[in-house]
Design a protein around this nucleic acid. Structure first.
Lengths: 257, 257
DNA sequence: CGCGATTTTGAGAGCCGTCAAGATACGTGG
DNA sequence: CCACGTATCTTGACGGCTCTCAAAATCGCG
């Protein structure tokens, strides 16, 4: 399992640059609209922004964090490691995704989060979370909503790794990523810039790097997709969906915390 | 994938038999103590009990449910199916575990829940969930806590299926089940009655039934565990933990909704 | 241009799946 | 109490999917 631990370039925190009322994500149809009161609280809730470069460790397994975060721009991934270095990527973090709930709720992170590109995160201090729960039940419900959504994605992922074949898994993952990226307008038609290496794909799907590469080639040979130079092109959406047995329906609007 | 769909014997709902103030689970050290106010609300929140026999489908993928539930006694499991019949067991449901949040939050279940033994469930109507969030923020936080705990278990499970070998997976699963059962006093020393068949183990770990059987035998030959006639005996806890690279530390007290 | 990271391809081994068949356990009805 | 059918467990044989090892090609960056 060839995997290099990147040095954790330290991230920098700064004061709020983007006030929540001008949030570039919020107008997207993927997110439910907030009431003025909710928006006002979000402005208070957000204490600043955190920027990190590619490779930065945003949250570390075992650590206690004073904050939770929402990805404002960039990509990241959640992962766990086995003592011998085997790495399992649990899920990816896209703009609008909330991370660090575990640290705030269970006191200690059980997984790590790393930046896949340069990232900007909205910072929410943990102690204000109590105010959210006591004064803004609709937002408290939203946080539960997001936790349930994450659980749903993990369920899907588990089904994939447990019972899909290699080619079905890769087909599933590309559709999953395409759908999520499309939700936040990161696609260009049927194309999509993906900052993942094949090693990331392998570690996500529980496959070796070599077999991942060969599986991608088979998908290309079957004219289902092309994934070259960090660009994914969906060539045959229906074919992929049929192969992966995965429905790529548009998702319901979700809250943006 | 030999798997039989059991006929869904219909479950029966009945009025509250066990008032929450006399809940047999609540005194266990695994659960955090509630304030009198919280307990009083729980009494109001609980609308009754549901009993189901072995094999009953408690929640069905795709369905909308008016209720969520807490397992009061018995075992169940959450699962998803692929159209061709492959089944992935996502997690097990033990006494004290909350199920059906997805139906209440995302409107539609994305997985099913089936009873593994005769079960009794506490029933909580979905519409009272709003009252909980608006009037009892500490309980709202608890529900989020439980969702985060479930996510944590799924993360672990994903790591297991993605990167552990067959023998490590089975070692991991037995430790996982032993730990959770011990939390609710279902063990007898190092022994434990488990209502799972080897097919359930196979569907949980993404392995074939045959290979599951042979792996169990290898663990027995290595004097690590014995799992015969629905009874698991942990013969060498340290050996299992070392093999699975899994720490079986006692968990923090959790809320009981 | 040179070096590290990433991708690509081939060869061989082995873990694990499928197929098959028999053994054992368990519940039901005679 | 026995007979029988179903579900579950067990074991063996064989094939193939996926792993590891190895090395070359390509890309990206300073």
């Amino acid at each position: 399992m060839e995997f290099l631990v990147r040095q954790s370039v330290h991230a920098r925190e700064r004061k709020t640059q983007v006030p929540c009322v001008q949030c570039p994500l919020r107008p997207l149809p993927a997110f439910r609209s907030f009431t003025p009161e909710e928006l006002q609280f979000m402005c208070y809730f957000k204490s600043g922004e955190l920027t990190g470069r590619y490779g930065t460790t945003i949250l570390l397994e075992g650590a206690r964090s004073e904050n939770c975060y929402t990805m404002l721009s960039g990509w990241g991934f959640r992962y766990k490691m086995l003592p011998d270095g085997r790495r399992q990527i649990l899920n990816f973090v896209l703009p609008g995704d909330f991370v660090g709930l575990q640290a705030s709720v269970l006191n200690e992170m059980q997984h790590s989060v790393e930046a896949l590109t340069d990232v900007v995160l909205c910072v929410f201090p943990r102690d204000k979370l109590w105010t959210l729960y006591s004064d803004h039940p609709s937002l408290a419900f939203d946080i539960t909503w997001l936790a349930a959504r994450e659980e749903m994605m993990l369920d899907d992922h588990l089904l994939s790794i447990g019972h899909r074949t290699a080619i079905e898994r890769v087909a599933y993952l590309t559709l999953h990523l395409f759908r999520r990226a499309r939700d936040v307008n990161l696609n260009e038609g049927e194309s999509l810039r993906l900052p993942l290496t094949q090693q990331h794909v392998a570690d996500t799907l529980g496959m070796s790097l070599v077999h991942t590469n060969k599986t991608l080639r088979r998908l290309y040979d079957r004219a289902l997709l092309s994934w070259r130079e960090k660009t994914l092109k969906i060539l045959d959406l229906d074919g992929l969906a049929k192969l992966a047995r995965y429905d790529i329906a548009a998702s319901n609007p979700r809250p943006l915390i």
